[in-house]
Nucleic acid binder design. Structure first.
Lengths: 121, 121
DNA sequence: CAGTATCCGTGCTGATACTG
DNA sequence: CAGTATCAGCACGGATACTG
């Protein structure tokens, strides 16, 4: 891990009210996080390779990194089964599930935006 | 302008429902956009230099770029007064104002996240 | 299978200098 | 005043090879 995070997370020096908003944004921002979320949303734990397959063209490193960030943020749970070959399953935590309403809000606005700007195609 | 946008915008090839969410995310993602939004939220049009002052340490190029993106996305209106010296004022459009509820949603979740992860300080 | 290590390309962002 | 042009740095994400 050569770099960590945008550092907007803790907002130590915050005198503004946008701290929580920026925290939320930094957590859900990431090229694959939304799609990972959608995959895990089904409810049953999903294996690393299955997530990779669901995403299509993600590299192992990128997927691993995004998953690790989501785990560190408390969005997903990582369960390792001490088997051979190794098996690791990921699932949404309650905190992760609570993102649902945020995505719904973004979905509603996104649709309104697309409509307003006539970006149908 | 040497580069344009992350290209997740139009979602031409979308077969998934996350298109609108990603569109919304790409639009509000940007180092200064949330703070610009907060400044313009007061209601009265604000001049370029006043926005810069409100942000503190943003470069002119970065601010200009963020404003241009927000304008292109229909979030803010740009009014040029043909005076000397030139005066340009920015204000939120109705579409921009409609982001309010999205930010509220992010704010609520962000607060819950901070609480869950004990990131107070 | 599920990663990690290393290298690398690109794009976002900033600093500085210049213009109408 | 309100930008634009150019240069530069670094974070991000990807490719490939290697490991427990």
């Amino acid at each position: 891990m050569s770099y960590s995070r945008q550092a907007t997370l803790s907002c130590d020096n915050n005198s503004d009210a946008s701290c929580s908003v920026e925290a939320a944004l930094s957590i859900i921002s990431g090229k694959w996080k939304l799609k990972i979320y959608k995959i895990l949303q089904q409810g049953t734990p999903v294996r690393f390779s299955m997530i990779a397959k669901g995403l299509g063209d993600v590299s192992e490193k990128s997927l691993s990194f995004q998953l690790r960030e989501m785990e560190n943020d408390g969005l997903i749970a990582r369960t390792v089964y001490p088997e051979v070959p190794p098996r690791v399953e990921y699932s949404l935590t309650d905190l992760g599930k609570s993102l649902q309403i945020v995505f719904e809000s973004l979905d509603v606005w996104g649709k309104a935006y697309i409509k307003a700007n006539k970006l149908g195609v």
